[in-house]
């Protein structure tokens, strides 16, 4: 018998003690408010700023200018973008002529891992959506915008459509039908990387980004 069979046999020999299925939806309906989009935006912003992220309201017309301003304020002149995405392509069209060098994630990581780890000061990705309750970005990395983009560069800039806010994590997964298929990796990100492992003193930039910048995209500011 394999370890698998032995473990399963031991578990099956025990009484099952079946229990009624808990009603998760009812709990959320009774305990979490359903807010208007403006309220959600406000809550999202308050929570993620508390977690040390920087948030800027932008419009389709001015987001690239804001992006350049953010980079300039941090003295960053190099940005990793995803050329296969509309926002990545827009950045690639605009920023290099304005003096920000843009690199793209156009090869498997094995071909440029050292460069990613040592010479990539900032990156731009989009968020799929966000969660108001906890001030959380939802990222679904893919072939165009791979996983390490939101992790390795010390400054991570995220473009978020302000109409894409959910009240709760539960609402997000239910509305989008996540149970029917998740990508290779999906992420909730609620601030820059941090640790309190030394004498409970909070320090940012433990292993992931030291700074998280959210560009909150809407029609008016």
């Amino acid at each position: 018998m394999s370890a698998r069979d032995r473990i399963l046999a031991k578990l099956k020999a025990a009484p099952l003690l079946p229990k009624a299925e808990p009603d998760v939806a009812a709990w959320f309906a009774g305990h979490r408010p359903v807010e208007s989009n403006d309220q959600k935006v406000e809550r999202f912003r308050r929570c993620i700023e508390l977690a040390h992220a920087e948030v800027h309201a932008v419009t389709p017309a001015n987001w690239l200018a804001k992006l350049r301003e953010v980079l300039a304020s941090k003295q960053i002149d190099r940005l990793l973008v995803a050329e296969g995405t509309p926002h990545g392509a827009a950045a690639l069209d605009t920023l290099p002529v304005q003096g920000v060098e843009c690199s793209t994630y156009d090869m498997p990581i094995e071909a440029w891992k050292t460069e990613m780890f040592t010479a990539t000061p900032a990156s731009l990705t989009a968020a799929r959506a966000a969660i108001a309750e906890t001030g959380t970005l939802i990222l679904w990395p893919d072939a165009d915008e791979p996983r390490l983009m939101s992790l390795v560069p010390p400054v991570h800039i995220v473009l978020l459509d302000r109409t894409r806010l959910y009240n709760t994590f539960f609402e997000a997964m239910q509305t989008e039908g996540w149970k029917d298929g998740l990508p290779t990796n999906s992420l909730l990100v609620s601030g820059p990387s941090k640790t309190a492992d030394i004498q409970q003193t909070l320090a940012y930039g433990a292993h992931g980004p030291k700074e998280l910048v959210v560009l909150l995209l809407g029609d008016e500011q």
Partner: peptide, 10 residues
């Protein structure tokens, strides 16, 4: 209220 990262690997 939530951790910085919640990482779902499928």
């Amino acid at each position: 209220n939530i951790s910085t990262y919640f990482n779902m690997i499928s």
